[in-house]
Design a protein around this nucleic acid. Structure first.
Lengths: 187, 187
DNA sequence: TTCACAAGCGGGGGCCTCCCCGTTTGTCTC
DNA sequence: GAGACAAACGGGGAGGCCCCCGCTTGTGAA
């Protein structure tokens, strides 16, 4: 009898990769694009797309999997040059810039948080890890509370972006982050 | 010649009210409902609905216009019995309960914030006023920063709800609000 | 009352998401 | 190689949002 399969069938693997490549190009163009259009452009049926990526977020997370990496380096640099709380604030702003340039990221993060899946998926996992690193540094320096779950901070960040993620709302976002970072300091 | 009109034509007024009544019933049933279905149920074409309420938020805000009132009284009571910062936290949780029971409110608040319209519309205007009242009390008591825009706090609140508004996320929401309220205290 | 016209109406249709289900195909075994 | 079977495919369609545009009707003026 056929054993249960752990890896994707070769054609499925090909389709999956083609979908990611196509979606990356489509997103990068800046123009809005429907999922069916991505599927068609990738030369597969829409059902294939939805089978590989049940939700739009799943696709978005895969597309930006590699692009998120440099933000970790940014965090390290910031931590090396600024006090942790300030570094946290600066990094969150940098992330806002990064997300602002990438269609769908912000909505994806909110959806992940709202469904309790923040931290699963390449992008929000990376965000969570970076936040954990910065929080840890802050706790060690006695500048940030040590009892905070990075998931909570990630959720707050996603929430703020969903409400004031547009470039023209940057001043408001900055003020809100100010409040949040202050709230993360020890009492 | 015909003078420019300031009030709605009689039939338009009737349709508008019928739409609100119908939407209120539909929302109250708890089941999801499409806007087209609301229009049909109200006995008008969908275009009529969209003419009166260009976005879903506009309709939602109208539907809950009256139901938001008691929350102001709640805020007064809380302020009379607890220190302002604590009252703020408690009120935000109460609002989360209120919003959780009302389909569409949370999404509407986020949309209003994201489009810079927070404070316009009956519900978010009331929220903003209540927050202003509590912040004012807190500032007077020296317990909360006096330089905070209620719109910012409303935005943060909307963001948190969009990310952790579900009843089972209440503990997380509570922790997040803790951080935010702490961040609103004077340094 | 009648008339002219702007205000308002409505449904058809485009585009979207996403599911359903009959068909095809890769892979493993012999 | 051939066959069996699960994995994967794809297109059609249901239902949602929202716009377009030709038709109807309430209203103020004569």
């Amino acid at each position: 009898m056929t054993p249960p399969r752990s890896t994707l069938r070769a054609d499925a693997q090909r389709n999956r990769e083609q979908l990611i490549v196509t979606a990356a190009e489509a997103f990068a163009s800046g123009r809005p694009i429907s999922l069916d259009a991505i599927a068609k452009r990738a030369g597969v049926g829409n059902a294939t797309l939805y089978r590989h990526f049940p939700t739009r977020e799943d696709l978005v997370e895969e597309v930006y999997r590699d692009q998120i990496r440099p933000l970790r380096e940014d965090a390290r640099t910031l931590l090396a040059t600024e006090p942790p709380a300030q570094a946290l604030h600066a990094w969150m702003l940098r992330f806002a810039d990064w997300a602002g340039e990438r269609r769908g990221i912000c909505e994806a993060l909110v959806a992940m948080s709202a469904s309790g899946r923040f931290g699963t998926g390449p992008v929000c996992d990376e965000v969570q890890q970076v936040l954990a690193m910065v929080l840890e540094a802050g706790a060690t320096a006695g500048e940030l509370r040590s009892d905070i779950d990075p998931t909570d901070v990630g959720g707050i960040l996603a929430g703020l972006l969903s409400v004031a993620g547009a470039p023209e709302q940057r001043p408001q976002l900055n003020r809100m982050m100010d409040v949040v970072v202050d709230g993360l300091r020890p009492r």
